[in-house]
């Protein structure tokens, strides 16, 4: 789906968007209004109406995605159109503004919309980049499988450590019981936990003086290394899956904000016509 989102039906929506955008630019250059270009000329109203309709339609995509109603065309087509028309909005709304910006709701709308579009571009980038990386990173394993592998290694570590000194056992217990995946928002997105108890345990075991059986120590180290590897894999997986979600936390709420601003923009412009 990820490649075909952009090249859907031989760039059908890219072509549509480019045609619309070029038409708008040509009209803008041809149009010679009295005074400086702005939203209040015939072209301004036309571009504004077009931009508003596109905005409402793009927002409707979110609702459409939830309804799973197949009769309205397939979702892939909608997504492709959504991406390209969203990009067209950059040009259409800028031309609508006539490059006039100020401290007002109209410019606020412009910037809210830009935040939505930029987050959308980031989202598309993520959608193109991560799914294949996620598959590669998982290497055929599911999350549950990786988690089971970890608990199995934990069992081994526990058994191996029984005969060791209390301090080492404590370290291993922490490695088993306090290793967390997705500890915080930041760690989730970074994919790296600097205070991971498994890593700490391995470091300690390798660096500190060890009085017990060296063979057990080597076995423990190898188990811990193996566990760390799976943890990395899991954390990387979580990071990429989170990034596929996180842009939506900007994209969707700012869509709501932009829609509110759009309604106020239209209302206020005609209130004080």
């Amino acid at each position: 789906m990820h490649e075909s989102l952009l090249i859907y039906k031989k760039f059908k929506y890219l072509k549509l968007t480019l045609t619309t955008v070029i038409l708008c630019i040509v009209l803008y250059l041809y149009h010679s209004p009295i005074g400086s270009p702005n939203g209040g000329t015939w072209l301004g109203y036309t571009l504004g109406t077009l931009a508003a309709l596109i905005m409402f339609w793009l927002a409707w995509f979110g609702a459409r995605k939830r309804s799973y109603n197949k009769s309205k065309g397939n979702l892939e087509e909608w997504a492709s159109a959504h991406v390209y028309l969203g990009l067209a909005l950059v040009v259409i709304s800028t031309l609508h503004s006539g490059f006039q910006f100020g401290l007002n709701i109209h410019t606020i709308l412009y910037f809210l919309m830009m935040i939505v579009i930029i987050s959308g571009i980031i989202g598309v980038y993520f959608y193109l980049k991560f799914p294949s990386l996620i598959t590669k990173n998982r290497n055929g394993l599911t999350t549950e499988m990786m988690l089971t592998q970890i608990t199995e290694i934990d069992e081994d570590i526990r058994e191996l450590s029984m005969s060791l000194d209390d301090f080492t056992v404590d370290l291993m217990t922490k490695a088993i019981e306090e290793t967390v995946i997705g500890k915080s928002f930041i760690i989730k997105l970074k994919g790296v936990d600097p205070d991971c108890h498994t890593s700490l345990a391995r470091k300690h075991l390798r660096e500190k003086k060890f009085s017990g059986n060296n063979k057990i120590r080597e076995q423990l180290l190898s188990k811990l290394t193996r566990k760390e590897k799976i943890l990395d894999q899991l954390r990387n997986d979580l990071k990429m899956r989170s990034l596929l979600q996180i842009w939506l936390y900007i994209h969707v709420p700012f869509t709501f904000a932009a829609l509110a601003a759009l309604i106020i923009h239209i209302f206020s412009v005609f209130y004080y016509w």
Binding site: I181, K183, F185, K188, S242, V252, T255, A257, A260, A261
Partner: peptide, 23 residues
């Protein structure tokens, strides 16, 4: 752990309607 990739402590819906209301 928190292995849910769409759980960031706040729901999109809350955050969306809050921004909508503020604006």
């Amino acid at each position: 752990s928190n292995i849910d990739s769409s759980n960031f402590g706040i729901s999109k819906r809350t955050w969306s309607w809050s921004l909508f209301s503020i604006i």
